[in-house]
Design a protein around this nucleic acid. Structure first.
Lengths: 186, 186
DNA sequence: TCAAAAGTGTTTATAATACACCCATGG
DNA sequence: CCATGGGTGTATTATAAACACTTTTGA
């Protein structure tokens, strides 16, 4: 009572995940089938919340992480919510900087590649991922490097996301406004 | 009571617009600021509804059409809903076949161009619009032609949308799955 | 024969993928 | 000096925008 839906979900989530660790939260959809809950007539507004890969919150006993491709049985219409969230994440990864919400503060391209591959559900080329995100100025180098692993190999450069807030980076894929090309940064 | 939100909005809209004329309806967002309504605590779920350009429904006296760029003062937080709907339409026009919801059953490319231009808010080239929508197989020719106007000019061929339901036509703009190119229709 | 409107052919720009090759490190 | 992993250079491909030019009509 007296909260927005977002404040409410953040407060409820705080029992499971420290709110300061939530890197992104967005509304998905309000479900309204009168039969969705067997006992009473109830609306539910679903949200997608993301947490960076380097936080591993202590979870209460009734709560656990599950691979998105291998979920246990879910109550009511919750079955449809998870794919909706995943689809939203998948889509936004390709035209926004939303990767910031999955990655730690600093990371190598390979590490980021693995996060994208997990979220998208298919292989991602580190070469191309780097080029796309650098060209769009979503990433910037930190100058630092990660030490080599125990098996050797060239140490990877560390990058960070330029801004920790959602930005659209590929606004007009098609049917974009006419006129002379926008000035490149000079 | 007993309706989904969508059934409810369709029923309410039926007083203004014949439901059979609604070509598209999709949920936008649920607004939940406790102060959004001055009298009582109230949630609102906003929808985007579209009507083809060739229907001109009889409206009740308290209702009217307004240009989206020149709206009268709106109640409560309704000010933010209209831009959200417009933005959604703009975005989906570029990666889906949503144009079907704006256009009559048959139309020339020029007529369609005018609808896209109005919805997008900038000029659209009929040449390029035709190429994009034909390549994506969103449009198909009917074989018929529109008669010339009073000032002459070559008569335009008539087209229709291939499917009258929302389809994503440009799914993987970037970060698409690797592998050999998907087979063209052969 | 001219103006208006539609349509086609072709060039150009750009972005992304694919792939070959080079670099830096540990054992 | 070799295996391992990271990174760069470059070719290829795809898509869309831009623009010149041709076609079809009415007056």
């Amino acid at each position: 009572m007296g909260d927005t839906l977002e404040e409410s979900i953040r407060r409820h989530l705080a029992e499971k995940v420290d709110v300061r660790e939530l890197s992104h939260l967005e509304q998905l959809e309000t479900l309204s089938d009168p039969a969705r809950s067997p006992k009473e007539w109830q609306l539910a507004t679903a949200y997608l919340g993301l947490v960076p890969s380097d936080v591993d919150p202590e979870l209460p006993g009734d709560t656990d992480w599950h691979p998105v491709d291998d979920l246990p049985a879910l109550a009511f219409d919750h079955e449809s919510i998870v794919p909706a969230g995943r689809e939203r994440l998948r889509a936004k990864l390709s035209y926004t900087n939303l990767g910031f919400a999955l990655a730690p503060a600093e990371f190598t391209i390979s590490e980021l590649r693995d996060l994208y591959a997990a979220a998208l559900g298919h292989d991602v080329s580190a070469t191309n991922l780097q080029r796309v995100l650098l060209r769009r100025e979503v990433l910037e180098p930190t100058g630092r490097q990660r030490a080599s692993g125990p098996t050797g190999g060239r140490p990877g450069s560390l990058f960070r996301f330029r801004t920790p807030e959602l930005e659209i980076t590929d606004q007009f894929a098609v049917l974009r406004p006419p006129g002379p090309a926008r000035l490149p940064v000079s």
